[in-house]
């Protein structure tokens, strides 16, 4: 009788923490233990007593990769509870946000998390050495998804407000920054709250 065990204490290239243990006897899997040792943050309980205004800002931080989905889900739940209907524009903008999130997380998943397995390399960085063109394309695609979510996509109307293409650092800060000042001057979608 042949016995084999497979033990991966830290599962790599996934978001979150976990390990797996598999026991194989005579080419038959006898035991599989998946251990998820993610620490609990208890967001559900921490939310109690919070004001509705604060919920989205807290919930979006549940998960980094799908923060846009958490934002939209939290807002929809609150609107449902309060009987609020949003405008078509808001609805469409949320759709755009979610599409940006999908592009970003799928590109991340394909190129950085899954593809290295198919090429038998430990990470996207090694993959970049053998397939520079493909990896660069994947990272550009991921960046597009991020820029859609950040509202800093290169389109003619915002190009003039973006910082000149200087050092890497200034380019990054320009792409992190909310869209240019012309946009803010034209319209303020958040009018003063009566207090």
């Amino acid at each position: 009788m042949s016995k084999r065990t497979l033990s991966i204490p830290h599962l790599g290239r996934v978001e979150g923490h976990g390990g797996i243990y598999v026991r194989i006897e005579d080419d038959e899997v006898r035991e599989v233990n998946l251990e998820v040792y993610e620490g609990s943050r208890y967001y559900e309980a921490l939310l109690r007593g919070k004001h509705v205004d604060d919920v989205q800002g807290i919930i979006t931080r549940v998960c980094a990769i799908c923060s846009a989905s958490h934002t939209v889900a939290a807002l929809m739940a609150l609107e449902d509870a309060l009987g609020i209907t949003v405008s078509t524009r808001t609805h469409t903008l949320r759709g755009l946000l979610l599409l940006g999130s999908t592009i970003e997380s799928h590109a991340l998943h394909i190129f950085a998390l899954a593809l290295p397995d198919f090429f038998h390399v430990p990470s996207v960085l090694e993959l970049a050495a053998s397939h520079p063109r493909e990896v660069t394309f994947g990272l550009k695609l991921k960046q597009l998804g991020n820029r859609i979510q950040e509202g800093s996509v290169d389109v003619p109307s915002t190009r003039s407000t973006r910082a000149s293409e200087g050092s890497a650092a200034s380019r990054t800060s320009a792409s992190c920054a909310p869209s240019g000042r012309n946009w803010r001057r034209r319209s303020n979608p958040w009018p003063a709250r009566s207090s």
């Binding site: 290239r13 950085a112 998390l113 290295p116 430990p122 990272l139 960046q143």
Partner: peptide, 29 residues
């Protein structure tokens, strides 16, 4: 994720340092 989000710089970072342990982005750490 923000490190992975440095799309323009990630590959150049990898040229200057040797990332030996990064469970989120690597297997075989």
């Amino acid at each position: 994720l923000q490190i992975l989000n440095c799309e323009d710089e990630l590959l150049r970072i990898a040229e200057r340092v040797e990332i030996v342990d990064w469970v989120m982005a690597r297997s075989q750490n």
